[in-house]
Amino acid sequence: MPAILYRGSLLLGSMAVFATATLYFAGAFNRDAVTAPKFVDLQQGDTPHAGFRRAHAKGICITGNFESIGALSSYSIAEVFKKGSTPFYGRFSIAGNNPTAPDLKAPVRSLAFAVNSGTVDEWRVAMNTPPVMAVATPEAFFQQLQALSPDPITKQRDPEKITAFFKAHPESKAFNDWKADYVPANSFAAERYHSINAFYLHNELGDKQAVRWVARPHKATNNAAMLDTSSANALQQELASRLDQNAVKFDLIFTLAASNDDENNPTIPWPSDRQTINAGTLSIVSWHNQENAACGDANFDPLVLPQGMSATADPILRARGAVYAQSYRRRAKETLLGAKVSATNGGE
């Protein structure tokens, strides 16, 4: 198949897959399904923070370049993997729906970025510190969030409810093993961030290869002396201090699935002996407050993929796009209404 026709078919296929997944998770095919609005209702809690993300509400914007070494160009026709430099913008964040939460209290940290923004070759990435999910379906993930949600009266989590959930879901073993051993770094720059879900790479011959990837810190020091543990913004301040001195760098290490690896189940780690390829380096050169930069309004939907990449059938991956979109619509509407109110009040 000629390359141009193949690229066109990939694009159309990706659009169809995204539309189907969005309709499914929005509840169009099953009235009893866990819908995106229900999911976001649970994430935001009883008192939403207007204008902010329903998950990972607190973050800091970053900009820089992805320096590709071309090592993935035989696996994917994506422009971003050709040898060269491409600007990106992105965001470090912590888990939770509170935009003023203490950085050091969050159990999960995240890295998101967008390369080739606004083009047909745009690649949006949303990564987290856990290497796997605890469960494999949107329905089970919804139940997990319910189990972890604080009691509306006591505002405390119920340990018995949490224990019962994980006992009923033995597939969460790999996640819980990671959680038991995980020691948070003293810096956003010293963490490892994982794609968690798998994706396909497509080359010019139409071959596809399932992959996961990790952002591995590039010579980052985990220096406790740089961290002001008394500050609610400790990680953001530490990152700003680092960037005042040097760029912060991560290598993007792709793991290639073998034929017996299940790319559709995000709870299963792939064996450590799988082939890995260093695609290049994310070089972060500046930071900005999220209220005044592109990342603040951005929707880092991982289903926005360039030609040469596509989504697997992983049901959680397919569901993420609809949830991200629902959260985005809510905060965009709140921001717009807030702006109208400010204008009516003379800009106060």
Rank of each mutant, 00 (worst) to 15 (best):
D103H: 10
P130L: 09
T276E: 13
Q275S: 07
S310W: 05
P184D: 11
F113A: 08
A19Y: 02
R7N: 06
P2H: 08
L5K: 08
N30D: 15
G8E: 05
V40Y: 00
M309Q: 12
T119L: 00
C61E: 13
N264C: 05
D207V: 01
R318W: 06
K105L: 14
D301K: 02
W287K: 12
A293G: 14
G96Q: 01
N289W: 13
L201Q: 08
A3K: 13
A189T: 04
K161L: 14
N97M: 00
F188A: 12
A78D: 05
I284C: 09
Y24V: 13
A55H: 04
K179S: 12
V135F: 07
T137I: 08
G296Q: 14
V183Q: 14
S241F: 08
T100Q: 11
K105T: 15
P266T: 03
A189H: 12
L282D: 05
S327Y: 00
Q156Y: 00
S76W: 08
V108W: 12
F254Y: 11
N176D: 08
A114Y: 02
G296A: 11
A136K: 15
S187A: 08
I253F: 05
Q245P: 00
G64I: 09
D41M: 01
A114D: 10
L317Q: 06
A134T: 06
G8H: 01
Q144G: 01
G347I: 12
I94G: 01
I60W: 05
L303I: 03
A174P: 02
A332R: 04
F66Q: 12
A174N: 10
A140N: 08
S85T: 15
Q237R: 13
W213T: 01
G96S: 02
Q143F: 04
W178Q: 09
S73Q: 15
N97C: 03
T63C: 01
D103K: 03
Q156I: 05
A71F: 02
S117I: 00
P87A: 11
L205Q: 14
V341T: 13
